[in-house]
Amino acid sequence: MLGCAAEFGANAGAGGELPAIASRQRSEKKSFTDGEIVDGFLKTAFGAEYHLAGRVDRIRKFDTPVRVFAESDGRADRKAQLAKVVADIARRVQHLDIAMTDDAEAANVRVKLVRDRDLYRTISTFYGAEKAREIRSSLDPQCLSGFRKNEKFEIEHSDVILTVDNGDFVFLDCAYEELLQSLGPINDTASVPWTMFNDNVSMGFFDVYDQYILNLLYDPRIKAGMTLPEVRNVLPEVLADVRTWVKQVNNLAE
């Protein structure tokens, strides 16, 4: 999926009934070694596919409840699909408090639902014409997410832009990828074949491998601002607990 996740500023899920998603779920790889999980986590939680300011060698995550507000001129069906995506993420990430809100002022994640023809105009409105040109020339995304963090590397606000008129699969694929990346694992990688944070991979649902990544990130022992050595020090015990949770929530066999 040609999505873009960017860090801005210094300081059966929802579509299991779709054939394209159902076929991917049937063939999904669900068994991974510790090394495979840790490799993907470190590659996505550190770094940034496209960043404009600030350091990218620290863990970045929300340290508060996450409230998602959807802004759209229409397409109530897309808002409903987005709400299902958010509910699915909430169910599968143990220590993440995330939910929709109808109060724009209470939201720290804003999702802008736009027509495809309005995508780059919307990106320009959010980030300025020059940055929009840079994003278009380097990434040419179909959807976009970005966040800003404070000096403690805590995410304070995220913006997600999704197109509503490219079909159900593209919408759901973008919604999962960009919402999840807006929570912290912002670095796309082509070297991990099981993650949706790979521009060569399209899922349309919250796969088991990425559940491992998000559950590791939002475990309370993994804190915003941690360095790579600090994270490696606590990962073994965190991963053991995360394995238990992901197995339980997905009814995985031993």
Rank of each mutant, 00 (worst) to 15 (best):
A53T: 13
G47Q: 00
A76G: 07
K61R: 14
D73K: 08
R78K: 15
A70P: 05
V68N: 03
K61V: 05
L42D: 03
Y50M: 13
A70S: 14
D34A: 13
S31H: 14
P65R: 06
F32H: 10
K29V: 15
R75N: 09
G35W: 04
R58D: 01
K79F: 01
A70L: 06
R75Q: 10
R67F: 10
A76H: 11
I89C: 02
F69C: 04
K61W: 00
A80S: 07
S31E: 12
D63S: 09
K84M: 08
V68S: 04
S72F: 08
F46A: 04
G47A: 06
I37T: 12
A80T: 13
R67Q: 10
D73L: 08
R55F: 01
D77S: 09
D63A: 10
S31L: 07
I89M: 04
D57R: 00
G35H: 14
K30T: 13
D88H: 14
G35A: 15
A80E: 11
T44Y: 00
K79R: 10
Q81V: 08
Q81R: 11
D73C: 02
F46V: 00
R92Y: 14
S72P: 09
V66K: 01
Q81N: 14
A90F: 00
Q81M: 09
K84Q: 15
I89T: 01
V56K: 03
L52M: 09
A83N: 08
V68L: 06
V93T: 13
T33Y: 11
F46H: 04
H95K: 14
E36C: 06
A90W: 03
D57C: 01
F41L: 07
D88M: 12
A70E: 10
K43G: 02
D63R: 07
A53W: 05
R67Y: 06
A45T: 11
I89Q: 02
R75C: 08
G47F: 02
R67I: 00
K43S: 11
V66I: 10
I89S: 00
V66R: 04
A70H: 08
